[in-house]
Each structure stands twice: as C-alpha cells, then as structure tokens.
Design a binder for these strands. Structure first.
Lengths: 226, 226
DNA sequence: ATTACTAAAAAACGAGTAA
DNA sequence: TTTACTCGTTTTTTAGTAA
C-alpha cells in the first residue's frame, strides 16, 4: 500500500479515537469510513497491522484497534506538512538541528569567483560560512530531494589557477521567521539529502544564538518555478 | 482515481504554490513530489484536470498548473477534517446551519415512553423540541452517515393506545463548545444524512441565540465504540 | 528537456462464502 | 454478527518510446 494512502487511513482511524486507546472497529463499520467494501476494509486493516501501524486484536468476535507510536508520529508529521500547504503555500517548511561541518563552507564562500555571483543574485556578500542543518523527518528529507531538483538561482562553477569549483544553486529562505538568507546546494556537495546548508548576510550562529543541536526551522521560497 | 488520493495530490500541488498562481510543474518534477514515475505523474495530472481540479496548460514545452476553486475548497475542508483528528480525537466535528422543521420534534420528545428513557440515558429530561441542522460539506455528510451506523445509546421504541413509536439512538455532543446535549437519530427519521437533530436540557435556540440560517458547530463523542 | 501514448505487469477491488 | 479467505475483474502503475 502506498504511503500517501496509508496516511489517510491512519488519519481516519485517529479520528475515531484509535490514537488514544483500543477502540472497537468492526470492518463493516470501517468500510464506510474508508469508503471501501467490508472485504477491502479487512484487508487494509491487516496490511496496516503488518506494517506496524496498527495494533489489532479480535475480541468478542469483532476487531479492536489502536494506533502504534510510529503511526501517530507519522500522522503528526504529515499534518504539519499539510498545514504548510495552507499557511505557507509556495514555500517548503523545514525543521532540523544545527551541526558543525568541517569548515569547508567558509573556504568556498570566500572564493571571489562565487562571491561576485552571490552579490549579483542576493544583493549582498554572504557571511563567509554555512550553517549546516540535519533533517530527521522523512517528509522533510524528501522535500529536500525535491528542492534540489528545482532550478533555484544558478551560480556557475569556475576555475582558478589551482583547481575547479563546481556549480551551485541558491534558494531564497527565511530562517526562524526572521532572518533572510538562502539554502545553498553545491552540485558536488558532500552531504546527502538529510542535510541542508544555509547562508545569509549575517553570521547565523551569532545572530540567532545557535549552537550544535539547536532546533531550527526555516522556509524556502519556491519562486523559481514561476 | 479515489477521492482520498486526489486530496493528497492536491495538497502537494498547493504546497508548491499552485493554489496561488500558475506554476511551472514538469511531470518529471511532479513525479518526485508524488512518488510516482514521470508517466504516472503525467497521467495523474491529466485526470485531475479532467475532474476539474487543476487548470493545466503546456507552455514552452512544459506543464503549468493552477488549482481550481473547487480544488481549493475541498482541500480546505479536508484539512479541517484532518485537524479534527489531532485536536478532537474520538470526536466528530460537525458544522452546519440551523433550520426549522415542522415541529414534529416537540411531539416526539414529549412522549412519556421516550422521556423516561432519555432521563435514564442522559440524566435529565431534554427540552421538548429538536434543533435541526443542515450539513452542506460532503465530508460532514459522510461523517453523519458513519455516525448513524454507530451504536450510540439505544432508546427502545414502544406503542401506546393509538400508535407505535420507533427506536431512537442518542450520541452525546457538545454544542458550540459550551452546551452539553446529544445528537438524536430516529430509525424512522424523515431526514437524510445531510440533517442532524440535536437535543439538550436547554432550549438551544434561546440559550445560544440561534435563528434559521445561523452557522453552528458541535462535536459528537464516539464513546460508544469503546 | 519534456509530454504522453501503448502495452504488459502489478496491485487493489468487491462478490461470494465458510467459519 | 463478524472476520477474512478465494477468485475473477477492474484499476493503477511503469517501462519503452515517439513526438
């Protein structure tokens, strides 16, 4: 069963109180909630149970169910995602935790070949350094994969005497609802889709009083698809 | 395509800003958002367009889309439904508008055969009359269908000298977040699933200052499935 | 780079039904 | 009543590919 379908079923089950306690849920009755036949409701419930989303017992000849912690967590995460569609349409909302890289960010940000282009694209010279954010929520990680596919603001690669520097993409962002900045994604990034790097005019660590492990949120504007 | 799936796709599209304006959305890119192949993304988009949820144009060799009003309305309604799962688990939230019936409610509520049982079930003698509420949102109408399938508090039918009175079910409710009451559903109800009848200790019209057309909301506790 | 058709495979569906 | 199996049918999905 596909993830997006699973979530809608879990929401329906949460609705009838299965997130709180064991709840009687005959498959004939679930059938109406799910908009399926009794047989399909039975099958769906078994699959949800096999996948570890639902604790299911047959007591007194009828099914009693309860959502697992995993299910509740995923529903909560999805609801956040959904709320973003209403509250921040045209933006991706990210949440994650600050961590320290190896300082390569500062090295790259200082290259004149990039700096000139950053100024042209953003209207300022960014602080020489990147803020690394690690994502844990699978929905956010997927969001980051999708973000990376987008055009963004293209910064071209170049070469100086000693080496070549790869292309980079920028995505304008608002960090902690207050500071303007951008997500920066290097074609040759050493990080996977669970990491986002942020830049800004300001030293974000100082400005926002961040240390390793601080939870941070930011919104990325998807203007580039217009 | 099933309704529950449609809604999740529309939410994804709203997320990328298609609720606000025409947005570039190549099917290769939608494929990642939808978690499908490019071909399926293309097909899904065509179906959404055929169903009137998406306005779709192919410009400069790539797809541009925008959500229809209908789509936005249904997403909003679904998001309300979803929020109910978090904010009021184990309850159904209803919204509708007050309307006048033919006064039959008062006649039935006055029958001693019912009154005794109401007292036993609710702990009070309800005000002799029912408040009629008409639902318009399809999600709520379906919710009402599901509610009627539930056991609720059974009130048995009876016969007096002249005629028989059918069975009735009660579902405890909180009206306008303040007044205790119950949804009452008669087996022989003359109303379809777009109507809910409410009773309470109080005269709800007076207590809550309601007139025909007033928008009203109430929550029904699904305790009966425990 | 992008859309969307065809065809074949895979998944989901509900009627019938036993327990 | 209720669950959940079988099985034939319908729907959904993707790879290959033309435009």
């Amino acid at each position: 069963m596909r993830k997006r379908l699973i979530l809608t079923y879990l929401i329906d089950l949460m609705k009838i109180g299965a997130g709180e306690q064991m709840v009687r849920a005959p498959t004939t009755y679930l059938a109406h909630i799910f908009g399926l036949s009794q047989q399909s409701a039975s099958r769906v419930l078994s699959e949800l149970s096999d996948l570890g989303y639902v604790i299911k017992e047959v007591k007194n000849g009828s099914v009693w169910i309860k959502l697992s912690e995993k299910a509740k967590q995923e529903v909560r995460s999805y609801i956040n995602y959904v709320l973003g569609a209403i509250n921040h349409p045209g933006e991706f909302v990210f949440k994650g935790r600050v961590f320290s890289g190896m300082g390569e960010g500062a090295y790259y940000m200082s290259q004149p070949g990039y700096k000139r282009q950053f100024y042209a694209a953003l209207g300022y010279y960014p602080y020489p350094g990147t803020l690394n954010v690690r994502l844990t929520d699978p929905i956010m990680i997927n969001q980051n994969k999708v973000l990376r596919m987008m055009r963004g603001v293209q910064i071209r690669g170049f070469r100086d005497k000693s080496r070549t520097f790869g292309g980079v993409k920028l995505y304008p962002a608002v960090i902690m609802d207050s500071v303007e900045g951008a997500v920066i994604y290097a074609e040759r990034s050493i990080y996977g889709p669970d990491v986002v790097e942020l830049i800004s005019k300001h030293n974000l660590r100082r400005k926002l009083n961040l240390t390793d492990g601080t939870e941070i949120h930011f919104r990325v504007k998807l203007t580039e698809i217009r």
